[in-house]
Write a protein that binds this DNA or RNA. Sequence first.
DNA 1: GAGTGGTCTAGACCACAGT
DNA 2: CTGTGGTCTAGACCACTCA
Lengths: 238, 238
Amino acid sequence: MVKYEAIANEMRQRILTGTYPIESLIPDQISLAKEFRVSRMTMKKALDILAMEGLIYRQRGSGTFVMKTALLNQQDSAVNEYEGLTKQLSGKKVTSKVIEFNVEFPSEEIMKHLMIKKKQPVYKLVRLRVVDGNPYVLEHTYMPVDLAVGLTEEILEQSIYRYIHEELDLHFGGAFRKIHADKSSHYDQEYLNCKIDDPILEVEQVVYLKDGRPFEYSRSRHRYDTRSYTISDINRNN
Amino acid sequence: MVKYEAIANEMRQRILTGTYPIESLIPDQISLAKEFRVSRMTMKKALDILAMEGLIYRQRGSGTFVMKTALLNQQDSAVNEYEGLTKQLSGKKVTSKVIEFNVEFPSEEIMKHLMIKKKQPVYKLVRLRVVDGNPYVLEHTYMPVDLAVGLTEEILEQSIYRYIHEELDLHFGGAFRKIHADKSSHYDQEYLNCKIDDPILEVEQVVYLKDGRPFEYSRSRHRYDTRSYTISDINRNN
DNA sequence: GAGTGGTCTAGACCACAGT
DNA sequence: CTGTGGTCTAGACCACTCA
């Protein structure tokens, strides 16, 4: 653990436990640097983390304050969507029903999203994710075979992401998503058990590896009444 | 303009114009620091920006590479949603029809979202935003009167955000959003001119000022066929 | 003018990858 | 072992706020 992370953790605790109350001025960087016995640059780097998290804000000339919203939003399940459902809903019982598992050559659209050639095979899979017995999301997924090599039905029924991380030792760098509303298709109605006029929340995403190679293109179709997508966007610049 | 931003701009140009091609190794930090006549820490800070933008990735021990995806995603209209429609769609003709403009005491829910007291009045307004003559989004907005003081119908018909920034000199720190799909109400059908079984994409958001005070709570209801919500999430950690 | 946070430096040490 | 990027330091200067 590097110093600035350790300090950020300590400072976060002080905010969450009220040692530094909401809207209060906290000590200046020089005092804090002295207290933690680090240089001021390192202290600032620790505070940068808390600012990114929306816990503090800084006003040049005035000082550093605890944000009014500091005690909210202590959940970040939004951004790490591609970590997989299994990890996100770790309290609940998540199972997967594999509806389709094939290999094929990519369509024009898939080629574009995964940045691959015409004759580079992809896995195509459709999975229904079931949470505590209720149908939750219907996922249509495409992955290049050479990146996700060695998939089996057994893996699909559990967590693909665990396999990717632990067995293949591949790590994600980010994702690009689009969110739409859509009418439900017969397919949705059948598997998600929704009514004919129920809308669908579709999340279309491309997940990238750390080096920027596209790893997965998927469309996740959610029942409109069980899922909302959450985004927090705090202190992005300065 | 600070040094690291200027250097980041120059490096970004080199990537976008192909001076540093896709997937290539770029010079090491020490060489670059020499070239730009800055310290290595400053050079690293410039590269940090490009990494956040998803243009490069760095491998300790190996070097810094241009991401395969560097030439994509050169649009970021997603994250700055609260900058307002007028700014986002600056090529098109955006008008607003004010459907409701009132002042009232907040409901329980509004009190919670805006973190205000029971007797603190709020503006309630409903606007239909029209882009190039087509109904685009129906916005239900609540703002504390003491923060958005002095709103007039005239301002509402143009850009609220311009008024807030330029006249009131208030600046945003971030936003917190939830995205749902929903069935259309009679209200939606009337103003958005959509069919009875058309779904709606609703974006519910709280916008915060830099000091964390909630400034606006709104629900924006979009036609499902004209709007998708885009999120890019690259290199968030490391 | 005193105190704050933001930037920048020159140099050091460390962790890691490739040889 | 060499070269890479990540961290950390001690000190300097600057921009800004507030009394």
